[in-house]
Design a protein around this nucleic acid. Structure first.
Lengths: 348, 348
DNA sequence: CCAGTTTTGACATACGTCTGTCAAAACTGA
DNA sequence: TCAGTTTTGACAGACGTATGTCAAAACTGG
């Protein structure tokens, strides 16, 4: 019933508590023979150190820093809310979580922020990756100083960061493509992919995934050349209405990045033969559009879950446990299976 | 930086630690006036009891019991595996989780098992509900003896159990219906619903949800009368092949319950014009069928997540915190967004 | 003001771990 | 065998909380 304590281990190994402690915490100054007896006792008894008692005694706090993109981009807002939610929820576990806002999509600003961090102040840092050598170098410097870094949502510096928490964007793209197949079961069609810019790896990967599935032989579907709208609603509105006018045979739209307010605007003006629309991230805009049938599906990366897993990973890293990459599986929302908007993305 | 301790509270309230403790733990024998000063100090300092220190001191263990249906029904297997996973993972938080197997779908056996429980032995019990007065009565008796009960996956005794963790089956059904709409965007169709038996509330609710969506005006879809296959593969195989033969115009199949091995068997023999197939629960069978295009979508209730949330709820109940019902949102799996089979359902 | 009650504070012990100090014991090499 | 080193065990105090005992202090009613 009761799990063994280090005292039990010491007794069973026939050594003093001090010695058992020296072995457990690698303090050295222990004869090889004694060390082995202690190890054996630990295994035999199945001893597991009571981490809460240990933390209490050590006065340990886990100090984590999140660097989140500034701005009210719907997705980042959700992310920030989820983080605040977890910040209070985890206080009880001695997790002290801080976050700074950094300019969005600005690798240099992010790198500069990293350089300003005092490695003594935190046990782990989480950030949203951007393709950039400067950022990679800054991450390298921080890791070199002994402060581990993990990436969130979008990866960076794969060989330096300890762990990546986020979706596989190729899979996300394939999922979108699959939805296009399903909605075109018995008919042919032309699918228009829209992205922010080809310069963003995540967008390229989603496009790649969608293309793989859509242009599979026998699909009967054709994928058009992607258009770039810089994640900006106005540009989205202009470019897409233009294209729809010039090519009325478009039967599906896959919006890979942001700026969907412009798209929804446009869709609300089309009253018949609306194309199938799949887009990314559950935001107030996409939720409303889904509910009223303006769009068909939303692929979401569950930001609340990502935050929670990121924190789990950071904690594992701080405790020197292995922290595996954690691939979040993108989820599909239709009009009916939307999470309760007040429930933190359907998460705890 | 450091959060205040009860000593800080006592000092700030101008009373001794003992008095602050008496207030905090409601031991009585404290003058109204002192109690108020302590309360005020708690609020002003934002004091939060260090629950780990408290549990350490109290030698508290949380003892939870799960009653899971016996048998290798794919879904229950997943559920059991998730539970074992969490059992070891939560040991560190002093959660001692036990589970018994009980006969599946047998309300009386379940009720009998409940009667055999000594309320002293556990802090909370979780079970999978079944429609039955006998079960409700047994739950009532247990709750009456001071042992709280929660329901999982399927609800029971709504006014007695403390909390229900699971999906809303009407929503699950609506989601299936929505998938049928999407796959029939520009064509009409006939959808065949298959369920275990109309006697199971969950199945009725799913059917209801699907019907709501599919037979919405203007959908162009017709939903056929449901057939019952007792969750048995052989019956599934026989009945469905029979019906498909007699009604070749069926364009969609919604399998609400179990026995899908029979369905997949049948589908593998149809080489062209396979109907759209939506079914429930990710199992080895459904996963394989999804991957090779035999079926189109799986609606999953994320058993690993349900288990984890159930444990969270039980813990909240044991700590006398409010434990809200937690509606899990059913998720949609297509061929591409399947979770890693080794990763506990994509969960931690 | 007294006796009786209520309220209070001081103190001790415990939970399981961490950490530091110190002297005793057990080794080592020459 | 002796000096020097390594290893060991005993002990104490701490983390924040829980819980029990006891006597002192502050009230109360008459």
């Amino acid at each position: 019933m009761k799990s063994p304590t280090l005292h039990d281990v010491a007794r069973s190994a026939g050594v003093s508590y001090s010695t058992a402690d020296r072995v457990l915490n690698g303090r050295g100054g222990v004869a090889e023979k004694s060390a082995q007896r202690v190890q054996r006792a630990i295994e035999e008894l199945g001893y597991r150190r009571d981490i809460h008692a240990a933390n209490l005694s050590r006065r340990r706090n886990y100090r984590f820093l999140f660097l989140l993109p500034r701005g009210d981009h719907g997705f980042f807002t959700t992310l920030r809310e989820a983080l605040l939610h977890e910040t209070v929820r985890r206080l009880v576990d001695r997790l002290v979580i801080t976050h700074y806002d950094v300019p969005a999509f600005d690798a240099e600003a992010l790198a500069a922020e990293l350089s300003r961090i005092n490695p003594e102040d935190y046990d782990c840092v989480a950030l949203i990756g951007v393709d950039s050598n400067i950022l990679d170098a800054a991450i390298g410097r921080l890791v070199g100083k002994g402060l581990p870094v993990i990436t969130l949502v979008s990866d960076s510096a794969t060989d330096l960061r300890q762990s990546y928490i986020g979706i596989d964007n190729v899979i996300a793209g394939r999922t979108a493509g699959r939805l296009m197949l399903l909605t075109h079961k018995t008919r042919t069609g032309r699918i228009l992919p829209i992205l922010g810019t080809m310069g963003v790896r995540d967008h390229r990967e989603r496009l790649q995934g969608a293309t793989e599935v859509i242009s599979a032989p026998g699909s009967g579907l054709e994928i058009l050349p992607p258009i770039e709208v810089q994640d900006r609603p106005e540009i989205m509105l202009d470019r897409v209405s233009e294209i729809l006018k010039s090519d009325p045979a478009i039967t599906g739209i896959y919006s890979i990045g942001g700026g969907n307010r412009g798209l929804v605007d446009l869709l609300s003006r089309i009253e018949r033969n609306r194309p199938v629309v799949v887009l990314h991230e559950l935001t107030p805009t996409s939720r409303a559009a889904l509910k009223c049938g303006m769009i068909d599906a939303v692929i979401d990366q569950k930001p609340a879950e990502e935050i929670s897993r990121a924190i789990d990973a950071m904690r594992a890293i701080a405790d020197d446990l292995p922290a595996p990459d954690s691939r979040v599986v993108p989820t599909i929302y239709l009009a009916d299976n939307l999470p309760d908007p007040n429930a933190n993305g359907g998460w705890t």
